[in-house]
């Protein structure tokens, strides 16, 4: 197990949760109602307004564009290439905000949790006024610090502005394998708010700055509220259909055996088995 230590900022976050109970009740009325189940609107490509793959027009550097074209050329023969979720890795930021499956948002004064039903990815967005820690633990969903902005007619905040850093990898923007840089120095800035004309529509304006990009890339994703939620468990490992052995990706058949993922793929090397090697 990797035991990576998150920074001291989180300890401070807990401390700041201790506030006068009466003040807490008043504060609770200051936040918007984002309860319920939020369901993705639009395609599963990162920018839902554009076609997938190269059609996304992501501002990739020449180096990463070449890598992406290489990955696309291998598909679908090796569908897991550069698509880490196929190996049950988390989507991570910013891909998790595609919300492949529905998500829930739980707002408390010091923290907002974004809970994704796909693999239970759990984002903590700290809104306790703390600053960035000096030593940040890497995580697929990073460390997110946010603050509330704007007020509606009832005096409730309208917009959650978030910045996320401290990311782990490998990550891709979406299932096509559209890459983020290997250095994991991504910074993601978001503005999340309800549509002023429709309380059941939520938008997330996501701006990604990354060394795989020549400039910040802004994409807006939309979610529709389902107020009568049925939550479905999406456990990647329970339905895992591929695995990597010796650098080759193999399928796992319905009866639990290894299968090739491409014509002519050699069987895995069983060099550690006496009966396979004849030793």
């Amino acid at each position: 197990m990797r035991h990576r230590r998150w920074a001291a900022a989180l300890a401070l976050a807990a401390a700041s949760a201790v506030s006068a109970a009466s003040a807490r009740a008043a504060e609770d009325n200051a936040y918007p109602d984002w309860s319920g189940q939020w369901v993705r609107v639009g395609g599963a490509q990162f920018d839902p307004s554009k076609p997938p793959g190269l059609g996304q027009d992501a501002p990739l550097t020449p180096e990463y564009k070449a890598k992406f074209e290489q990955a696309l050329a291998k598909k679908p023969a090796d569908a897991t290439d550069n698509s880490p979720t196929a190996r049950c890795f988390p989507a991570g930021m910013p891909r998790v905000m595609i919300a492949i499956e529905p998500m829930e948002i739980v707002i408390k004064p010091n923290i907002t949790a974004v809970i994704h039903s796909y693999q239970n990815e759990f984002r903590r967005i700290w809104t306790d006024g703390d600053s960035w820690p000096e030593d940040m633990e890497q995580a697929f969903d990073g460390l997110s610090i946010g603050h509330w902005e704007g007020k509606d007619a009832q005096g409730r905040f309208t917009t959650l502005a978030v910045e996320t850093r401290g990311l782990n990898g490998p990550r891709a923007f979406d299932d096509s394998g559209l890459p983020l840089a290997d250095d994991n120095e991504t910074v993601v800035v978001e503005k999340i708010s309800l549509d002023p004309a429709d309380a059941d529509t939520l938008r997330d304006e996501i701006t990604t700055t990354d060394h795989a990009l020549t400039k910040p890339w802004t994409v807006t994703r939309t979610y529709h509220r389902n107020r009568d939620a049925v939550w479905v468990e999406h456990v990647c490992a329970a339905s895992k259909s591929t695995m990597v052995i010796g650098g080759e990706t193999y399928a796992i058949s319905a009866d639990g055996f290894l299968k090739p993922t491409r014509p002519g793929q050699p069987a895995p090397d069983l060099k550690f088995f006496k009966s396979a090697t004849g030793k």
């Binding site: 197990m1 990797r2 998150w6 976050a13 890795f89 633990e137 890497q138 995580a139 697929f140």
Partner: peptide
């Protein structure tokens, strides 16, 4: 002292 660990 809170330490959140990503156990994947």
């Amino acid at each position: 002292k809170i330490v959140w660990t990503e156990n994947l």
